[in-house]
Design a protein around this nucleic acid. Structure first.
Lengths: 330, 330
DNA sequence: GGTCTGGATGTAATCCATTACATAGGAGGA
DNA sequence: TCCTCCTATGTAATGGATTACATCCAGACC
């Protein structure tokens, strides 16, 4: 491996001068600079980032912890994070925690061991207290999901309002019995969306029926299962609001299997507006989150924190949108 | 920040002894070991990985370059890579290249600058020559896609055989005019799958009709577009084989919009067996790749390379499978 | 008691790049 | 001509951990 010393020897200068050339320090004569640059090219010298990072105590790397990249919701969020990072000279390190606290802790070692300069939590499984502690010592931001009592900034949508809007959409179409399929992961978005669902019912004078709420795993199977249960009720719902598109698709598939037509016999609303929502047949009515911007703003806050050691922990809420498609209006 | 020196001072020993404790070196008396471990706990000391990595010249990090995590094909491949890495004490760094050579080069700097110990290419955009050069100097493996002439090991399925099987499935159902929707990214899998498609036709005595082949971007829109073109032909195909599930779904959606029934009027086969294949309506017949194992085997080879500086560049082919669902038989 | 052995620990070099401080040498002013 | 000042460059300390080698000491053996 070629080191800065090799370059210095070959160019007949000291390592300090080579380092200055590398870092565009002004006090290097152009003659020397050219000479050194020529040698760097000839030897194909690549500075060792470990040495540099050790000295500067920064690595220009950001850890992004998410549940699993297979969740299609994340792709654009990550893109937003990445673009802003890239613009600031930072690399992104994506890691799946699989919602496993042990794994999350292992990855957090990277933060504690200084291998990354900061971290984004896309679905923390740490406790509020742990997260607060980390926030005190390291640069971290929460994105999309957040721990309510953690003193760490967060960027998300207003989940109560979004769920309200989705539910109200169904109510405005005349539905009175609206099933709600929630997740069971203990995420804050789950309780907030349930709150919005209930609020919309209440505001419209529809009594809340606890039988119309199911908690199941995020995903297709959860949607199938919950819907099967709904449809076997004596007085089944005429509409379903699910907290993810994939759950909603499971619901539609199950409804079709049971001979129901969507939206005629059962209207379905999803959440997230992932790619599949528009592709499905029928295309899915859903809440669109500003996914790219969620990532972008999160990263902007993180960059700001790293630059200025800014420590306030605000909560930021971005705009969402109801996208009406065939699964509710046909 | 607490350093090994702080621990040494607090414990009244030398840094060497602390280091030995950290690394479970046998020649430390149990009394000293306990004393040091106590101090480590009390000070909550976290060794700085930069210092360690610099000294050991290894970071225990692996770079995984993929086109984009939004491609659902990758999730399980990455899981396989990750699991094996995790088991060997390696962390994974996932990076989207967006098929942009500039970005790929930036990320490769991490390899050249020693910030990662090795890399997996899931869809290299480098030239064969560049890749060969990198393979000579660093530990890298190709996965799923590969550059034909690059002297770098690879793990994939036999794409010719897989496409042959998919096409033959349609032929065996009586189809004679089979449209083929290929990608246009210049990936090796594209030409191999086309080869398999042609071979199946040829072996069954069906003449190859170049009008039945379309090249479009991977993805839903590509499927829509290509199918629209097919359906406007005088003598349109009765079946379509697409090189990705999402393209196939675009094809189905377009067919339905045109009033065709799938599979009755148009049979469709996809590729990859991503999650959506089983969820779609009709469920998609597709080629299932052993995605987890593709990742697993790739990583095993990479670990082996790193451990033993093994430099042979074999090509490994794993088994694939045709999964028959509603989109061809109904 | 003297010598040898080996276990436990310490000292200091090392990995590579950065940078505060030191120094040499040339330009400009008195 | 001499002195001052500034520019360009070099020297060496630094960041944190690892490890070859040195050292010390206790116990074993003659």
């Amino acid at each position: 491996m070629i080191t800065i010393q090799d370059v210095a020897n070959a160019a007949g200068v000291s390592v300090a001068t080579v380092s200055r050339v590398l870092n565009n320090h002004p006090s290097v004569s152009s003659k020397t600079r050219e000479k050194v640059e020529k040698v760097i090219r000839e030897l194909n010298y690549q500075p060792n980032l470990l040495g540099r990072s050790l000295r500067r105590s920064e690595t220009k790397m950001i850890l992004v912890l998410l549940q699993n990249i297979s969740n299609p919701f994340y792709s654009k969020v990550v893109k937003g994070i990445e673009d802003i990072g890239y613009k600031n000279g930072y690399h992104i390190m994506l890691c799946n925690t699989d919602s496993d606290p042990a794994k999350e802790h292992v990855y957090l070692k990277l933060l504690k061991n200084r291998l990354v300069d900061g971290a984004v939590f896309l679905a923390p499984v740490l406790t509020d207290q742990e997260l607060t502690n980390i926030g005190e010592n390291y640069c971290v931001v929460q994105c999309c999901e957040y721990k309510e009592h953690a003193q760490v900034p967060s960027v998300s949508i207003d989940n109560v309002a979004a769920a309200y809007k989705a539910t109200y959409h169904l109510i405005s179409l005349g539905h009175k019995r609206i099933g709600f399929i929630n997740g069971n992961s203990g995420l804050i978005s789950e309780s907030l969306r349930e709150e919005g669902y209930k609020k919309a019912l209440c505001d419209s004078g529809i009594e809340f029926d606890p039988h119309l709420v199911r908690y199941d795993s995020y995903g297709y199977r959860g949607g199938l299962r919950a819907t099967k249960e709904f449809l076997s009720m004596e007085d089944p719902p005429t509409a379903i609001f699910a907290v993810s598109d994939i759950i909603a698709i499971g619901a539609i598939k199950e409804a079709k299997e049971s001979g129901l037509r969507v939206p005629k016999d059962l209207a379905v609303v999803g959440f997230d507006d992932t790619g599949i929502a528009a592709m499905y047949d029928p295309a899915l009515t859903t809440i669109s989150q500003p996914r790219y911007d969620l990532g972008r703003v999160t990263m902007e806050i993180l960059m700001e924190r790293i630059r200025n050691n800014n420590i306030d922990h605000k909560r930021i809420f971005l705009e969402h949108n109801l996208v009406v498609r065939e699964s509710t209006i046909g």
